[in-house]
């Protein structure tokens, strides 16, 4: 297969994705270097996090991303109906992520934990909530793409919109792949 000079979807989304990756990268580096000065504190409070919930969320995001890959493959085959169905399935997995993360937050807040509790929780809550907002934005984009797909707005020849939404959603997944071990596992 001949290689393209440009990534799938609209180039503007890729510039946006790179900007997002830069911001998350700064967050990750700040977490790691701050932790270097507070190793005991970070290890102690990291142990209070629910790793099973993090596992469910990681599997949900990967599955969702895979469903989006299938949606793109479907529209390349000119199958708008299947594209719509795969996108719906992806959105459902996104919803699972939001629900599990919401339960985690509720648990923390019920224990009186907030941004000002300590440095670890400041990073944990701000980084995961920043990502949480990106999941919501990604779902809004996928809903718009799914509705257009259902209306027959995409075809095998013209499906830039599907690839644009898919690229953003994969970025949300990509960021979580680093966030999960960094915050929940590495100590």
């Amino acid at each position: 297969m001949e290689k393209s000079k440009w990534p799938p979807g609209d180039l503007v989304i890729w510039i946006f994705i790179m900007a997002e990756l830069l911001v998350f990268g700064i967050f990750f580096a700040a977490y790691a270097f701050t932790r270097a000065n507070h190793v005991e504190l970070f290890n102690t409070y990291q142990a209070t996090l629910d790793r099973n919930a993090a596992l469910i969320n990681t599997l949900a995001l990967i599955t969702s991303s895979y469903f989006v890959v299938r949606a793109v493959a479907a529209i390349k085959m000119d199958d708008s109906r299947k594209c719509f169905q795969w996108l719906l399935a992806a959105l459902f997995m996104g919803l699972v992520f939001l629900l599990v993360k919401g339960i985690e937050y509720q648990h923390h807040f019920s224990q009186g934990i907030s941004l000002s509790t300590n440095t670890f929780y400041m990073f944990y809550l701000s980084m995961t909530f920043f990502h949480f907002l990106h999941v919501i934005l990604g779902m809004v984009i996928l809903i718009a793409v799914a509705l257009k797909a259902r209306a027959g707005g995409y075809s095998a020849r013209q499906h830039d919109g599907v690839e644009t939404g898919a690229s953003y959603w994969h970025m949300v997944d990509l960021v979580w792949m680093v966030l999960f071990p960094l915050v929940y596992v590495m100590n």
């Binding site: 393209s4 990534p7 890729w14 989006v68 898919a166």
Partner: peptide
């Protein structure tokens, strides 16, 4: 998933460069 293996030039390596950078920083810390 993002399809970058079918792309040439800068965009082929954009995600890899990001991963290498943050991986190095986190690993060093």
């Amino acid at each position: 998933f993002m399809g970058l293996r079918q792309v040439s030039g800068f965009w082929r390596w954009a995600v890899a460069i990001w991963l290498l950078l943050i991986g190095s920083l986190i690993g060093y810390a």
